[in-house]
Amino acid sequence: GLEHMADEEKLPPGWEKRMSRSSGRVYYFNHITNASQWERPSG
């Protein structure tokens, strides 16, 4: 619920959580730099 939404908002600017269609794993994508990574971004 609300706790999940608050957790999402802690991601650094530009980052969003996405799911890989090929593997079904969650990864993180930065739409500003077009960077993507499996680890949760910090800072």
Rank of each mutant, 00 (worst) to 15 (best):
G24Y: 04
E16P: 00
A35H: 15
R40Y: 08
Y27I: 03
N30K: 00
D7V: 09
E3P: 13
G24V: 04
R40E: 04
K17I: 09
H4W: 10
G24L: 06
N30M: 02
Y28A: 00
S23F: 09
K10A: 15
D7W: 07
H4S: 11
M19T: 14
K10L: 14
G14R: 01
Y28T: 00
N30D: 02
L2Q: 13
Y27D: 00
R25D: 03
Q37A: 04
E16Q: 06
Y27H: 02
I32T: 07
S23I: 05
G43E: 13
E16T: 08
Y28P: 00
P12G: 04
R21W: 09
N34T: 06
A6N: 10
L2N: 13
G24H: 07
R21S: 14
P12N: 01
W38Y: 09
V26Y: 11
S36G: 05
N30T: 00
S42Y: 10
E3N: 11
I32A: 07
R25E: 05
I32V: 09
P12K: 01
I32Y: 10
S36E: 06
G1P: 12
R21N: 12
I32D: 06
S23R: 06
A35W: 10
P12V: 01
L2I: 13
R25K: 09
N34E: 05
G1T: 11
R40D: 04
R40V: 07
G43K: 10
I32P: 02
S22L: 12
R40T: 07
A6H: 12
L11W: 02
L2T: 13
W15P: 00
P41E: 01
H31F: 14
S22P: 12
S22H: 14
Y27K: 01
N34H: 15
P13S: 07
S23E: 08
S23H: 09
S36M: 15
L2V: 14
A35Y: 09
K10W: 14
M19G: 03
Q37M: 06
E8N: 10
Y28R: 00
G14K: 01
S22Y: 11
T33R: 03
E8S: 10
Q37W: 03
Q37L: 04
I32L: 11
H31R: 14
M5V: 13
H4I: 13
S23A: 08
L11Y: 03
P12F: 01
F29E: 01
R18K: 08
E16V: 11
G14V: 01
A35Q: 14
E3T: 12
E16S: 08
H4Q: 11
P13A: 10
H4T: 14
M19W: 15
W38A: 05
Q37R: 05
R18H: 04
G1F: 12
E9S: 08
G24C: 13
R40H: 09
M5D: 14
G1D: 12
R18D: 00
F29K: 03
Y27W: 05
A6E: 13
R40L: 06
M19D: 03
V26L: 06
K10D: 14
N34K: 15
A35G: 05
E9R: 06
M5G: 12
E9I: 07
W15S: 00
V26T: 09
R25N: 04
A6W: 10
W38H: 04
A35R: 15
G24D: 05
G43W: 15
V26E: 07
Y28V: 00
K10F: 10
F29I: 05
K17R: 13
L2D: 14
G43V: 12
E8F: 04
E8K: 08
W38D: 04
N30A: 01
N34A: 06
W38V: 05
I32R: 09
G43S: 13
W38S: 05
M5T: 12
E8R: 07
N30V: 03
H4V: 13
K10G: 12
G14Q: 04
R18S: 03
Y28G: 00
Y27A: 00
R40K: 09
N34W: 08
E3K: 08
R21I: 15
S42D: 10
N30Y: 04
T33H: 04
T33W: 05
L11Q: 06
E8M: 07
G14L: 02
I32W: 07
G1M: 12
E3D: 12
R25W: 05
E8T: 09
N30Q: 02
P13K: 06
S22E: 09
E8V: 09
L2R: 11
R25Y: 04
G14P: 10
